[in-house]
Design a protein around this nucleic acid. Structure first.
Lengths: 223, 223
DNA sequence: CAAATAAAATAGTAATACTATCATTTATAA
DNA sequence: TTATAAATGATAGTATTACTATTTTATTTG
């Protein structure tokens, strides 16, 4: 079975829908690859224009600025994650199994599902780990939040929180635990790779280590 | 008792020691206030020069760029936190009490200790919450890490890990839990204030809420 | 007081983050 | 099929950012 998923992304995130044209799609596709390659701070629309073989002005017709492009990419990712959670939990009853699957999705790179995606999923994953906090750690947070641009993140968080409550109805912080699991899956993975003394990484790979840590944390806490 | 604390900050972080002159001290002091006020992205040495009533060129004699200034500020903060942990744990034997004190230090704003500090501790606290991840989430991480600029963070993390192990010697992830507690104290506080649906904030203040969440997490997990 | 050092003043450059205009190509609908 | 609108390209321009360099003026310190 081979299929494509696409999501409607919040209209406030773009000036012209990048999904509506070949150029728009290239901007997002190469945007992901370039942000991954050089990091968000060094990323500029000028550099992206060269990759895409278009002009800076053309990119500005799609996105107001690079922060909006990052938000667009992350919105896409969060929507995709929520879809994946839904999809993989179908027909599963046991809450423990559900939680295990979720932790796997959070810490695993999505490589295996790459067939169904139009973007470089490895680059996308790295961006989520290294750059996603830059989407909300900005002074303009309350303004941009009014545009509902964090709705997919909140939805994903709420969905995971539901499963947490299913598993242990008396646990008092399902949403906070959910966002902590998401954030920690990024930070521990990043630390394991770049500042390993902030972790207990042994001989495992960073990804595997992160999963082990999250599993221990979740199931000991909710026991 | 009234006293001042100061720490030797890694020499690689500056070109000229800001602690060695009145101008240098003003640069750091107003740097903290300006970063807090307008956010790291909007912060420039030009704007800081206006606040300090000096020139851009003069600031560049102290710090290579704004990222180094942020690292300097955070190094100072991490050293100060480690000092505070040491100081407040003096003569305390019970590991549980120790952990409780640490969680208080992590989630509390340091207002009460402001007397002994040369900087605006409220601004410093907000910077740590909103900007500290920008110090390490950069492409240059492995290069800057070679300059040992994260040593104070690692030391603080190791110190807290020691207490975790004291409290529960069989727990397998003391360092990762330690860095997770530090990071989560920032992210949950930030979310509670700006994206509360990612948390279980009720009627408590964000700070109190963060403490309750961390206490529950820590003691249930290490039980 | 002289010598050294720090700071101020000034200037300049390349890159960034845009905005604007107009010509050309491409899609679309009458 | 043509006209017309919409998208893109080409080009230019501005203010700000992120620096570096040089020369002059204060301030320390020996």
């Amino acid at each position: 079975m081979d299929f494509q998923v696409s999501f409607t992304v919040n209209e406030k995130l773009f000036l012209r829908n990048p999904d509506s044209s070949a150029l728009g799609k290239k901007i997002v596709k190469y945007g992901i690859e370039l942000i991954h390659e050089i990091g968000f701070e060094h990323f500029t629309f000028k550099k992206l224009a060269i990759q895409v073989e278009t002009t800076e002005a053309s990119i500005y017709r799609y996105f107001e600025n690079k922060h909006r492009l990052l938000l667009y990419i992350l919105n896409w990712y969060w929507s995709y994650m929520e879809f994946l959670v839904d999809y993989t939990l179908k027909n599963i009853q046991d809450p423990k199994t559900k939680l295990e699957i979720i932790l796997n999705l959070l810490s695993k790179d999505l490589g295996e599902n790459s067939g169904i995606l139009q973007y470089n999923i490895n680059a996308l994953n790295q961006i989520v780990i290294s750059e996603s906090s830059k989407a909300y750690l900005v002074k303009e947070i309350s303004d941009i939040n009014k545009d509902q641009v964090f709705k997919p993140y909140k939805d994903l968080c709420a969905k995971i929180a539901t499963v947490i409550t299913e598993y242990n109805p008396s646990y008092k912080f399902p949403r906070s635990l959910s966002s902590t699991l998401i954030e920690t899956s990024h930070s521990q993975h990043y630390f394991a790779e770049n500042l390993p003394r902030l972790t207990d990484l042994g001989t495992e790979k960073p990804q595997k280590f992160t999963l082990l840590f999250l599993q221990n944390l979740t199931f000991e806490l909710l026991k």
